[in-house]
Nucleic acid binder design. Structure first.
Lengths: 332, 332
DNA sequence: GTGAAAGCGCTAACAA
DNA sequence: TTGTTAGCGCTTTCAC
């Protein structure tokens, strides 16, 4: 069995409570005694049992981090940043994947509930109502979702989407289509709304096709709808989908960017490596991961303080998947 | 405060131990009482406190999963598979990232020690000696490392590397270089050894350059060494490095695969999306993730049973980054 | 500044 | 089949 506080106490010739204090409130213990205790602890290889501590303090020093799909390249940088920052702040993090399923998400929150001090919901697939309901039990912070009264980090994809429409309109495209993501995705809604507004400003036609799976496959399948709509400009929910759409278009004989221009979202490695290099909306994922942990810890510490919603900017990164519209007669 | 076993007991009109049994050993309790307890628990929204349970049982039902770099595309599919399979088996998993630093790895193991039943070390950067020492305290399972007496899942990259050399030699390349990965990487050693043996069989020259950072940057920097060695065939430690090397070669005026053939390892999305599409050694990451959890749980359950080392096959996937050697006079 | 004692939520003998 | 009791490792009053 592992070394406990009791054995350290014995070795140092003090009472257990003194050992406890040495670690949780060192200033309350005589410097000399403290030295002795610390030496004994080091000698025996003592490590506090956090679970036991949690039982009395009510603080586990653990966080939950729930994402839709770990393997989607959008998430790993965020997970990495969140996890590493949490560690600096003294927290370990449970990472869980919902496979894009809201029911799994709810179940996971339940399982995690008693063993974490709070949960980070990244691009949740749950409805706002469900989040609010579950949030009554447990501090939450959400990323890419606006929920009344809840700390949130929002990546303002709307401005990016607007810029994308400006960009496409500027290139002469008159008929655009937005390929939406999963049903409950806030990001997807933002893109649609902002792109719609921008299109109207430019007097450009814009239609919506969705929901789609946020994957290459989803994009590949959606290519048909793009052609059916007669669009020459596409804004896809994420890079993966944009890459899939480009493949799908190629299969149907339409080349990117010659015949159709495609814009992705996220600025993942995938988009940078793809050929043509993807024009995309860059999301500040690492900043978001860090900030979300910050907000969550704040929410945990100050029970019910004022809610903070943090908005991070996004940028349009122009690469090679967008180009000027070519006159109809030259197409096909 | 959260609902405890006591309140459920009161509501159901039974003693706490009966409630406890209803959840941990339902068959030991009268069907009728059980119903009543379950109903009361559901009514109150009771959720067992796993940390408290862990205190008495010594079982946390948590696992640790330590990787070198979450953002490296090799890991996410493995993490996803491991996490999802662990959940099916009733375990939650802490995911931690060491940033390729062995000291962080050791520290993380220490922190996790008392709150998990076992730890999965995926492509560890720690020395074997350190792993054995730390493993005395806590069940481990390792992936991509062979440690005496420890359950392991090995992706047999050696055969893949041999096949890669066969492939390159078959294309006429007579001078190859292996770009190694991090210092303590078992995979890197395997590649070097197997490639060396295969090169000897073919009577082909093979040199080694390493260690390198397992990133695009690392590959980019190593390109100079490739050219200096006068090699026309390269096997890189992973896809990222291969992609970086291709860029680096291009910068130096050498085109892939015209002037130099490059083989990666891992078969990540990155490699599939890169242009030229990467010839690479496919690693069964998802299978490995699942299998490793399996082995770890086995090790946890049967204290000190016979050690299992599981070897998974790898495949050479030929794409566009390798091609026939072109006569010297046509190069440059 | 340190010790004594109670208790966090739960399980596991042991009795009844 | 159910209740009683002790205790897991730790923190936290309260005395001294």
């Amino acid at each position: 069995m592992a070394v406990t506080i009791r054995e350290v106490a014995q070795a140092a010739g003090v009472h257990v409570s003194t050992v406890s204090r040495t670690f949780s409130a060192p200033n309350l213990v005589n410097a000399e005694t403290r030295e002795r205790v610390i030496a004994a602890a080091a000698e025996l290889g003592y490590r506090p049992n956090l679970a036991a501590r949690a039982l009395t303090t009510g603080r586990t020093n653990n966080l939950g981090l729930i994402v839709a799909d770990i393997a989607n390249p959008f998430f790993p940088p965020l997970i990495k940043a969140a996890q590493s920052y949490a560690r600096v702040r003294g927290y370990q993090v449970f990472v869980a994947d919902t496979d894009e399923d809201p029911r799994v998400e709810e179940e996971l929150i339940g399982t995690l509930a008693r063993q974490v001090d709070g949960v980070l919901l990244v691009s949740p697939r749950l409805s706002n109502a469900a989040i609010v309901r579950l949030g009554a039990d447990l501090p939450f912070a959400v990323v890419n979702r606006r929920v009344k009264g809840m700390p949130a980090v929002l990546m303002d994809v709307g401005t990016g989407a607007g810029a994308a429409v400006d960009h496409l309109a500027g290139l002469g495209h008159r008929r655009l289509v937005v390929l939406g993501g999963p049903r409950n995705s806030w990001t997807s809604g933002q893109i649609r709304r902002a792109a719609g507004a921008a299109a109207e400003r430019h007097g450009v036609e814009l239609s919506y096709h969705g929901p789609n799976a946020p994957t290459e496959q989803g994009g590949y399948r959606a290519a048909a709808a793009v052609l059916a709509a007669g669009a020459t400009g596409v804004i896809a929910y994420n890079d993966l989908m944009a890459i899939g759409a480009i493949e799908g278009l190629a299969t149907a004989g339409a080349e990117v960017p010659r015949d159709v221009s495609v814009v992705g979202v996220d600025d993942t490695v995938a988009g940078r490596l793809n050929r043509p290099k993807l024009t995309t909306i860059a999301m500040p994922t690492q900043t978001a991961g860090r900030a979300a942990v910050d907000l969550l810890l704040q929410a945990i510490d100050e029970a019910a303080s004022g809610t903070v919603q943090m908005i991070l900017e996004t940028d349009l990164v122009v690469r090679d998947s967008t180009g000027p519209r070519v006159a109809v007669e030259r197409r096909v």
